[in-house]
Nucleic acid binder design. Structure first.
Lengths: 226, 226
DNA sequence: TTCATACTTCGATCGTAGCCGAAGCATTGT
DNA sequence: ACAATGCTTCGGCTACGATCGAAGTATGAA
């Protein structure tokens, strides 16, 4: 009597508001951490963890361990297509969800990615470094040239000290809003710190947004031309 | 602030086993009464009634009063397509309600997808049309060529009438068992109807399977060679 | 009218799934 | 070594929704 695929299982997974919010957040195509997804869903990390393992068991998402982070992303294109088609149907029936907080377009401009700058500004910064030959991009790996070292020293950044530091000086990190790489690693962290110490920028209170002052914005744009 | 479609609402509706069973039963394309659907779901009529009103509010099904009966059916072709795509995803992840039973091979061979033919035969039909140039597949969209129109007219199918019909003549629908596209839309519906009027095939009694007579099978295979 | 059928609404029960606090691993940085 | 961070697991609490019996409404037939 019963035959065919178990649509109820998929429906149940998508049917919980917290999980639906996580999946919607992942529709951007960018891998997110459990903490970020918990924030997106409006639940604690414990609850989010439980949801994430269910979604993974159901084959909707996949996780990738990277350092002490676990990045979660949609399992594959089929999962994205499925969600897209459900969104299309929901929209056609006028079922819209209302989210409490305003969604900041400021996040796309500049935001914190763990400890470094991401978003439009983060991508621009790396592009500018590469264009002027301060950083060379060897496919996946990044490295600072001699010219780059002297330039950074001119900014007052000393990058030599902890030679025992296992963390790479330069690292690229994929940006969800730009879908391109921005500058991570020790250098990326140091630069963001530098901007904030100079008073050019500050972190947003409740969000990951980074807000630049008018003076800071001017300085940033002149330091990192396209 | 409204942000995006509410996929959780759709998911929750489909996520309940009883409702999922009802929807699966309605995928046969026939309108069923509340009592029949209650039986299909394995619940009492009171419970079924509650589920049906929720599904109707959600825009997945529609009811038609007729005498003291109320016939329930999928709201439209979009609802059928949505369910089929969810079935496809669930099947691809190995989520089956019941391991392959006796009826399963029949379902994979030929079944009703809301109002058109799906399964192996449905896919074969579209493949055959495309291979001989009766239908052109422009990536996502399908359209009938001049040759196709004359060929269909030869079968006794008149496809011109309701010019006001917003439903596309030709549409592709992803098949959960074959993971390929089959022919949906007005043409897909007309063809299935044609087969049944000719006495080549009939609907299965309790399932979505489409059973071909020996003569019907012979005709079908010669009409749609690979 | 009265009875029978088909379905809905009401009320109450009950199971399960979501939720969070606290504790437990795992990895990284100092 | 130790501390800090990111995430998972465990246990108990709570709330929502699925379920069914009983009663109510609507349609059709005797």
């Amino acid at each position: 009597m019963k035959e065919g695929p178990d649509i109820a299982r998929i429906g149940m997974l998508i049917g919980d508001p917290a999980r639906a919010n996580m999946l919607t957040a992942l529709m951007g195509g960018q891998a997110l951490t459990a903490t970020e997804l918990a924030q997106a869903a409006g639940v604690t990390v414990q609850t989010a963890s439980s949801h994430l393992s269910k979604l993974e068991d159901g084959g909707l998402i996949a996780q990738r361990k990277q350092g002490r982070h676990r990045y979660f992303a949609l399992a594959d294109a089929a999962a994205g297509t499925l969600l897209e088609s459900i969104m299309g149907f929901a929209a056609s029936r006028g079922h819209l969800r209302h989210r409490p907080g305003p969604k900041d377009p400021a996040l796309r401009k500049a935001r914190v990615c763990y400890d470094h700058l991401a978003g439009d500004y983060g991508v621009r910064m790396l592009d500018s470094f590469v264009a002027r030959g301060a950083i060379t991009s060897d496919g996946e790996n990044l490295s600072v040239t001699a010219q780059g070292h002297s330039e950074l020293a001119g900014l007052g950044l000393d990058l030599s000290p902890p030679a025992s530091n296992r963390r790479p000086l330069c690292k690229s990190c994929l940006d969800w809003s730009e879908r391109r790489s921005h500058l991570a690693g020790t250098l990326g962290k140091a630069l963001l710190q530098h901007f904030m110490e100079k008073g050019w920028a500050r972190r947003g209170d409740e969000s990951r947004a980074v807000v630049f002052t008018p003076e800071g914005e001017r300085q940033f744009l002149s330091l990192f031309p396209i």
